[in-house]
């Protein structure tokens, strides 16, 4: 009950800074968030969460769900039961065009645990010309190279 009360405090509305979700979400967009979400939603959903490194509130798209394998380096990582893999929509070229450096996402800070999930982004209510649901993106289950997990111990010798 206390957890629910804590979640109901929000945030319910977010203003966006920076450009790693271009073109779906742009700097200056105002978003509505469902903070009652307590599990990682389906792949392709945009979520608000606290970044593992900085603790900063950020938005990204779910690209891998708990238990799934995601490509990483020359192999793959297997996400734990409470972890998701969150990726930016923008390419490095798109963020550079907007005056920023490379997008920062799970490729930089790794998997994100569900404890860091703040909510599901479900609607953009400003600016007026862009009101509506941020276009969903259907993301297939990540395909990974069939060789070794990068997080498993290397064989001796």
């Amino acid at each position: 009950m206390e957890r629910l009360r804590h979640r109901l405090r929000g945030p319910w509305r977010l203003a966006i800074r920076q450009a790693s979700m271009e073109p779906t979400i742009r700097e200056g967009d105002w978003l509505l968030v469902d903070p009652t979400t307590t599990r990682w939603p389906r792949r392709g959903t945009i979520v608000a969460f606290l970044e593992p490194d900085s603790g900063a509130l950020a938005v990204k798209r779910v690209a891998g769900r708990p238990g799934e394998r995601v490509p990483f380096g020359s192999g793959y990582l297997e996400l734990a039961d409470d972890e998701a893999w969150l990726l930016a929509d923008a390419t490095a070229e798109a963020t550079a065009a907007a005056g920023f450096g490379e997008p920062i996402d799970s490729r930089r800070y790794g998997p994100v645990t569900v404890a860091a999930l703040i909510g599901r982004v479900w609607f953009r209510y400003a600016p007026i010309g862009r009101i509506g649901r941020p276009p969903p993106r259907t993301l297939a289950r990540p395909t990974v190279p069939d060789h070794r997990r990068l997080d498993e111990p290397r064989p001796a010798g």
Partner: peptide, 11 residues
């Protein structure tokens, strides 16, 4: 206006 700011974080 939102009172909270979230980053679509880039370098």
């Amino acid at each position: 206006a939102p009172t909270t700011t979230a980053r679509a974080h880039c370098d």
